[in-house]
């Protein structure tokens, strides 16, 4: 137990200041300070507001994580930090802080990919990842299907969104329906009272030529527009908008495409484990439909608990611990941030 690496992970790619500590495959603490309330009035994350909040929260969050885990900084074996992708100014705060920790403590530093971290976090939840694993990451910032032979150095992109991320579509539809930001949980809640088949909203990139050229890609912008137009038409006619039905039908269109493509990817690549991560993985209908379809296809579904699906430091620590365990070389102290770091690059 004690020879497993003790790793502290820092995540600041968007608006959550996350610090997690992992020993090997065991999660010791996951501490998050969020600036989401400061962004609510803008209807989206304002990068400068996020960066300011990261600076204020950074050291107190590290301090709190160590205290709650009963870990002394000098006992750490490595520091791990999100190097990208994400908001440039936000990433810089976390990376600078991680470097200062590594330098002061004399530990190696691993600058890692945010998306690979979303995959690796399930190791501390459900144990080692089967190799390969199929991973679908759905959030406000990303919608990707990844084939993952080795989360520490071999992550392959099968497809991603052509326009909006899935979570973004939730935010925009929430706005159309007069629901608060962030939209995901509010649409989910409203949808529980609604009829999923009330309105037949379009499923992007699922037919004919699209399935040839964009087999595992997604598109949610047409769906978002269709919802807005449908609601507008009702409003113009002076009719009440059935919010629950619109939410349920929209949500169904999203999760139908996501799960359909994810399972098709499992089948075609002969992979029998599907991992879903990212904030949208907290969506109750996505979980239910994925369970149903995975069971039917004989695929084992892995979804971390909601707190580990949204951005957090534990996922970065989890990937860092894998890097150490697999003997990967640490990053240089001069490692750069990369706001558009490709998903195929696990380490900076």
């Amino acid at each position: 137990m004690s020879d497993e690496p003790l790793v502290l992970g820092i995540e600041t790619s968007c608006d959550e200041t996350g610090v997690g500590i992992v020993r090997g495959q065991t999660l010791l603490v996951d501490t998050v300070a969020s600036s989401v309330e400061e962004h609510a009035r803008f209807g989206g994350v304002v990068p400068e507001v996020a960066s300011r909040a990261h600076l204020e929260a950074m050291v107190p969050t590290i301090e709190r994580a160590c205290r709650e885990a009963g870990v002394r900084l000098r006992d750490l074996d490595a520091i791990s930090v999100t190097a990208g992708p994400g908001l440039a100014g936000a990433l810089l705060v976390g990376v600078a802080s991680a470097k200062a920790l590594a330098l002061a403590l004399g530990t190696p530093i691993y600058g890692v990919n945010h998306l690979a971290s979303h995959v690796a976090v399930d190791i501390v939840e459900h144990g080692p990842l089967p190799e390969p694993t199929m991973a679908m990451l759905v959030s406000g910032g990303h919608s990707s299907l990844l084939l993952v032979p080795d989360v520490t150095n071999d992550v392959r992109s099968l497809g991603s969104t052509m326009d909006d991320a899935a979570g973004e579509a939730f935010d925009k539809v929430a706005r159309v329906l007069g629901l608060p930001f962030p939209g995901g949980p509010h649409v989910d809640r409203a949808a529980r009272e609604g009829n999923r088949i009330a309105i037949d909203f379009p499923r992007g990139l699922t037919t004919g030529r699209d399935m040839e050229r964009h087999r595992f890609d997604f598109s949610f912008s047409g769906l978002k527009t269709a919802v807005a137009r449908w609601v507008e038409t009702r409003q113009r006619a002076g009719e009440a908008v059935p919010v629950a039905d619109v939410a349920a039908s929209f949500q169904e269109a999203v999760v139908d495409v996501l799960t359909r493509k994810a399972l098709l990817a499992c089948k075609e690549h002969d992979v029998d484990h599907l991992l879903i991560g990212g904030g949208v993985a907290a969506n109750s209908r996505l979980r239910a439909l994925a369970e149903e379809r995975c069971a039917k296809a004989g695929v084992t579904l892995r979804v971390p608990r909601p707190g580990l699906c949204t951005d957090n430091g534990a996922m970065v620590a989890a990937l860092g611990a894998q890097m150490v365990s697999k003997g990967r070389d640490p990053s240089d102290l001069g490692l750069p941030t990369d706001s558009s770091m490709p998903v195929t690059l696990v380490q900076a």
Binding site: V46, E48, G141, A165, G167, C309
Partner: peptide, 16 residues
């Protein structure tokens, strides 16, 4: 103030 900065809200939401 950050409000004075002409930084448009990011297209990224806070859903992680």
């Amino acid at each position: 103030r950050p409000d004075a900065a002409p930084a448009p809200p990011s297209t990224k939401s806070t859903l992680g």
